[in-house]
């Protein structure tokens, strides 16, 4: 396949940046999207041009390091991460526009790499259950209803990639936040800190500059782990209750 790539190039955080166009030949259907970029980088290196910087690590769809807005869709046209997107989703002759996640809370570091440390800080501000090592009771001493445990698991599969923020016109991180609130809030172990957690986490979310949610659902559609919109409802509900309870 032969492709035309329009890629955002930006030398560093303070650089203005612009889309640059590249022609790439010899792309195979079996390549992953990132392997296609590897190929481009090999070509750029050969031509003494600096390779395109982009994030990736596990390349099996679980670490959440890869990102990329591909033709206006977070992680591209399939419901998966960019590293699991394959070139058979594209056709010979396609033009592909590749941009970084765009949000003031995710400042661009270089080219397609953004700084998502805001997510770490949201977790730092309550996204845990306080259980010091060694202080845990026997694991089976507190049963957890199976359906609640399942919901906790389903929402705990969030990989923290930031696609929800990238896809949201408000740049809200509500899906990320709601997923953690729901995960911990569904488990018996998460109850003691349930309402203080939601308060401090939303406080950090807002302080980081993430937008408010308008319930339009772009985040859930972009989520490679298919976290449903109902975690945002859960977040809202817990916050509403926290106004009274905590």
């Amino acid at each position: 396949m032969k492709l035309t790539l329009k890629i955002w190039r930006q030398a560093n955080a303070s650089d203005k940046g612009a889309l640059k166009t590249y022609e790439l030949d010899g792309v195979s259907q079996d390549m992953s999207f990132l392997e296609m970029l590897d190929l481009l980088n090999e070509q750029l290196l050969h031509n003494d041009e600096e390779p395109v910087a982009f994030d990736s690590d596990c390349r099996e769809g679980i670490c959440g390091m890869c990102s990329l807005m591909i033709n206006g869709e977070a992680h591209g046209p399939e419901v998966t991460t960019t590293c699991q997107l394959h070139m058979r989703s594209f056709k010979d002759g396609d033009t592909i526009t590749i941009e970084p996640w765009r949000a003031a809370s995710f400042p661009i570091v270089k080219d397609l790499i953004v700084d998502r440390s805001a997510f770490d800080r949201i977790i730092q501000n309550g996204g845990y259950i306080s259980a010091n090592t060694g202080s845990a009771p026997e694991a089976n001493s507190v049963p957890a209803p199976r359906d609640k445990a399942m919901r906790a698991f389903n929402t705990a599969t969030c990989i923290g990639c930031g696609a929800c923020v990238a896809a949201c016109p408000n740049g809200s991180a509500s899906l990320f936040l709601g997923a953690k609130i729901t995960h911990l809030g569904e488990l018996p172990q998460g109850q003691p800190e349930r309402y203080s957690r939601v308060q401090s986490m939303i406080g950090q979310h807002d302080a980081e500059g993430f937008g408010g949610c308008t319930n339009i659902g772009e985040c859930a559609a972009a989520c490679p782990k298919e976290i449903p919109l109902d975690v945002i409802s859960q977040l809202n509900k817990d916050l509403r209750k926290s106004m009274i309870l905590g």
């Binding site: 259980a131 906790a152 488990l187 172990q189």
Partner: peptide, 22 residues
């Protein structure tokens, strides 16, 4: 065995049976 206790206390959502046990 301590690891399992610790992880459950942290909220690791291990698979459970219908009775709610691991």
């Amino acid at each position: 065995t301590n690891i399992i206790d610790q992880c459950v206390a942290q909220g690791v959502p291990f698979a459970r049976e219908y009775g709610g046990l691991l």
